[in-house]
Amino acid sequence: MILNKLANKSTARYSLVMTRLARLRAGQRGVIDSFHHSHHDPRLATRLMEMGLTVGSEIEVAYEAPFGGALAVRCRGTLIALRLGDAEIVEIRLTAGADEP
């Protein structure tokens, strides 16, 4: 939560606030910084990159799954659903918070 608040206050486009994609709430945006290793699926990072989630691209959490557990993110104009466990491997540099228009 503190991270999110910090990010909301930050107006800089390239903030230094880092977090994981899994921790973003609907409406929050960021830039993909790097990928961590996924223990349950070693090829996950590659597939995410192939689906357009490349390092440096902008990403926005569009929806949280109604029962939780998953996110739908928008990246390169495509909506992609992924589990929180999978989103946990994506390191994000926050750019905007949910409170901004």
Binding site: S38, H39, H40, D41, M51, A70, A72, A81, L82, R83
Partner: peptide
């Protein structure tokens, strides 16, 4: 282990 779920939501 936990399985992954990554899927495009088409227009």
């Amino acid at each position: 282990g936990t399985s992954s779920f990554v899927m495009e939501l088409p227009t």
